[in-house]
């Protein structure tokens, strides 16, 4: 797991909060760090697998993975993407963001606030509660991330 400094984390948290107020309380920094570290897991934590309801993944009795496998080319694309995002967040943390970096921070803050809690944001579904969005009927597995 990549270790990040307190200064890095507080600068990135401030940028996330700036983009979407309230996002950090809902887990946006956790979301971003998990995304930047996604390829340090096997399978990578890119696509959460369906929950127990599916009878497939997420079934605790089936010793099933909680994340879907990536193919080798998908791994390559995600390595490249995450590598670029790490550099972008380093620029944000250093106080030298480019315009595209701020766009990225905004998109990730939105994902973290209103995406599924399986990815580390939207803690307890609080992002959905605050906008009146109903709990999904068939959510991904959340055990690993929440």
């Amino acid at each position: 797991m990549t270790v990040r400094t307190r200064a890095w984390r507080s600068a990135v948290a401030a940028a996330l909060e700036d983009a979407v107020p309230g996002s950090v309380d809902l887990g946006a920094l956790v979301y971003v760090e998990r995304l930047l570290d996604a390829l340090e897991h096997d399978p990578p934590h890119i696509w959460a697998a369906p929950g127990v309801w599916s009878g497939g993944f997420g079934d605790p009795g089936a010793d099933a993975p909680q994340w879907l496998e990536l193919g080798p080319w998908e791994r390559q694309a995600w390595s490249q993407r995450v590598g670029e995002w790490r550099l972008a967040y380093d620029r944000v943390a250093a106080g030298l963001p480019e315009a595209d970096d701020l766009r990225l921070v905004h998109e990730h803050a939105c994902e973290a606030t209103y995406g599924d809690p399986a990815y580390g944001g939207n803690a307890g579904g609080g992002g959905w509660v605050r906008i009146g969005f109903p709990e999904p009927l068939h959510p991904p597995a959340r055990g690993d991330a929440t």
Binding site: A48, E74, A77
Partner: peptide, 21 residues
């Protein structure tokens, strides 16, 4: 059974491809 109600996987992370990269 790979599909869930998951906006991140389907719309933000190219689960079904093609990955534009």
């Amino acid at each position: 059974r790979h599909f869930a109600n998951d906006e991140i996987a389907a719309h933000r992370r190219h689960l079904l491809g093609p990955d534009p990269l």
